[in-house]
Design a protein around this nucleic acid. Sequence first.
DNA 1: CTCAGACATCGACATCTGTCAATATTGATC
DNA 2: GATCAATATTGACAGATGTCGATGTCTGAG
Lengths: 118, 118
Amino acid sequence: MSKSQLTLTPVETAACCSPLMREPLSADQAERVAPLMKALADPVRLRLVSIVAASEGGEACVCDLNDAFDLSQPTISHHLKVLHDAGLLDRSKRGVWVYYAVRRDVLSDIAALVGGSA
Amino acid sequence: MSKSQLTLTPVETAACCSPLMREPLSADQAERVAPLMKALADPVRLRLVSIVAASEGGEACVCDLNDAFDLSQPTISHHLKVLHDAGLLDRSKRGVWVYYAVRRDVLSDIAALVGGSA
DNA sequence: CTCAGACATCGACATCTGTCAATATTGATC
DNA sequence: GATCAATATTGACAGATGTCGATGTCTGAG
């Protein structure tokens, strides 16, 4: 069902071309971009991204993120995994703590695709 | 930039403020923005939006949209309803045909929120 | 080595979502 | 009015998703 060896990551795809307004997305393009949008299409994950992005140094410890929500630790961990798997968050372990950082280039790519240059 | 009272629609919320990078979204803000992202977070709907946006006059007839996919007519109708309910597509009936048009301002707002000014 | 804390993974569950076939609704035409 | 074509709505169903409690894994401290 999938193409042979398309080396384009979702990021690159989103980065490359059509601002969604100019020319129709191909089915393949849509299939690659949708997961990125899906990862963002949740209130908790939106807040997670914004908290991380707005944090000092552009990164935040999981311990802090847990405290910001009224949700269980596994649930937060799950959302962070979704964002990380989608390529929206970078993950780095320092000692016992894990820090997540927003990949601003990916967010910019999404924005460019959705909003065009409008 | 100025804010009115309290009855913020998702659109207005997305339009108004924090580019997601500067300051954390409130729970309320996130709850209002997420549905917009959710509506876009599907390959079929992404393609629908792009097809409509790229069409002559910025609008497209449902009959054309049906032909562009290998999906049943009710399924396309359902996706169009999701996009319309989210406020991403305008709907106008002319005779027997129904035309959908992209609300570019809404897309721009989403883009501004996600991508900030980066 | 053992222990405690930070985070991830697992298993289960209720809810949401995408899809279709069948049917209803609406408008133009005969 | 009867009929046909274009869309929408309904009902059903499989699969995805968000959440939790329980448990596993790693790492630093003692």
